[in-house]
Design a protein around this nucleic acid. Sequence first.
DNA 1: CAGGATCCATGTTGATACTG
DNA 2: CAGTATCAACATGGATCCTG
Lengths: 132, 132
Amino acid sequence: MSHSRVDVAERIDNEACPLTEVLERVAGKWSIGILVAAAQGPVRFTELERAIAGISRRMLTLNLRRLERDGLLVRTVYPTVPPKVEYSLTPMARELHTSLSGLVGWAERHRADITTARAAYDASAVDAGTAS
Amino acid sequence: MSHSRVDVAERIDNEACPLTEVLERVAGKWSIGILVAAAQGPVRFTELERAIAGISRRMLTLNLRRLERDGLLVRTVYPTVPPKVEYSLTPMARELHTSLSGLVGWAERHRADITTARAAYDASAVDAGTAS
DNA sequence: CAGGATCCATGTTGATACTG
DNA sequence: CAGTATCAACATGGATCCTG
């Protein structure tokens, strides 16, 4: 039945546009890290800040807001002093965990391969340039 | 045993940095679309261009080069006239298919939820601003 | 057909400083 | 602690024109 190549191509054509927008949030540079880090349970702002390494306060805040806005994170403020804010995944976001871990696992497994591939690609590009 | 929260946080801290770089390529705005479209078999440039909808020639080329450089795509040039170029996934990239489909499936299932969540979030934000 | 090259508008990120 | 505000640097993306 209709699982020809045209079929899939059309599916992407028709739905990837809004889908792209959705995927961008989920699969953006920092989102995966945040989502994975928050998967263990409620996480505090500072915990995330340290867990995600290269992220700036600004970017963390922005991403948290976006994820909250899209219904992936719940932000809980405890009106104590000093302030305490916890972020946790919504059920919808929890459904992502498998795919996200899959992605992270893949990245871990193939990090070296990718580095190698890059070096090889760059080397042959240089060769082509040097071939005069 | 050691799957405490500190454990996971450290794992992310130590490895997410280069990992982030890897994930960016895979999870970038267009990469998923390209990878999914190419999963069906060799795809030509123009096929991709039409399949991915909003993408420009420039962005498609750039992304194809990056994916090729990272060893996720193989570019095959047929020296015919007019030229014919096909892109196909490497075995490494094929391993991603499950996770990627999972992501796409999730996005499809929850697109409406996300739209709703956004509207709700924005509405309450407006309320707060209007509450003078 | 499948790009490469260039210019320019825009968005994204980081650094820094300040706050309830 | 958990942000917000502002500015400057940089990357991203689109439009346009050109080519083997």
